[in-house]
Design a protein around this nucleic acid. Structure first.
Lengths: 124, 124
DNA sequence: AGGCTGGTTCGACGTGTGTCAACATAGACT
DNA sequence: AGTCTATGTTGACACACGTCGAACCAGCCT
């Protein structure tokens, strides 16, 4: 490939909080650019295999997992690698090589941003 | 058409609460069936046009909107109808014809279920 | 009835996506 | 060096998906 977009869907505030990419879905109609950005996240989780991989990493001890720990999802190893790459490109996971193994970990702030997107308006 | 799956992703408890289809992504690795179910929702929101349509309905007065109110998303009207149908099949919207117009409204419990899915474990 | 407007369905077309086998790369260990 | 294990990459293929125009259906309104 040539251009891997890494856009993170959030803007770090420097402090402990993050600014979600978009307001809650129920607050106002999303603009086209907002929707484009947010849809990338949802699409990344819109595949059963990716969802299982993501959940496996997210629920693993310390929020990180070696590929060998999570690659039992019923598809071939190249396919697992392919999906992990997609999740990485969507900004949901990060990867790091440590010796023989590669570890993936979740990007907690992005998860939070997605949660914000789906937040209900406090049951008005 | 022949088989429109309406599976609602939640099980009404009879009371005021609902049982989300799956535990939070971070709690434990999702099973294959759980992932299959949840991925359907994410996939439905994984398209920019659908996301805008959904947001338009969700943010509209009373949580419902006529198609004519939200069909300005840059694609042809048949395409709008197609996407609304997808959102309906995913259990995210319901539709009702009232005279000349067709109104779509959000399924709030499903939104809540998705929020649960992405809920963080209270910053352990 | 006949026409008009709002929506859906149909059929087709191009593009994107998930999957695998085969190959390539990175590090560990003889 | 050579080999073995763990991952990633490439190429190919079938299928799903988003999109549109055209045809169709449902209510209103003369």
């Amino acid at each position: 490939m040539s251009n891997v977009q890494e856009l993170p869907l959030l803007e770090p505030t420097g402090g402990q909080g993050v600014v979600p990419c978009c307001p809650p879905l129920t607050e106002r109609p999303m603009s086209a650019p907002e929707a484009e950005t947010a849809a990338r996240m949802f699409k990344a989780l819109g595949d059963p295999v990716r969802l299982r991989l993501f959940s496996a990493v997210a629920s693993h001890e310390g929020g990180e997992a070696c590929v060998c720990d999570i690659s039992d999802v019923g598809v071939s190893q190249p396919t697992v690698s392919h999906h992990l790459k997609k999740l990485k490109e969507a900004g949901l996971l990060t990867s790091e090589r440590r010796g023989t193994w590669v570890y993936y970990r979740v990007e907690p702030s992005v998860l939070a941003a997605m949660g914000q997107l789906l937040a209900m308006p406090a049951a008005a």
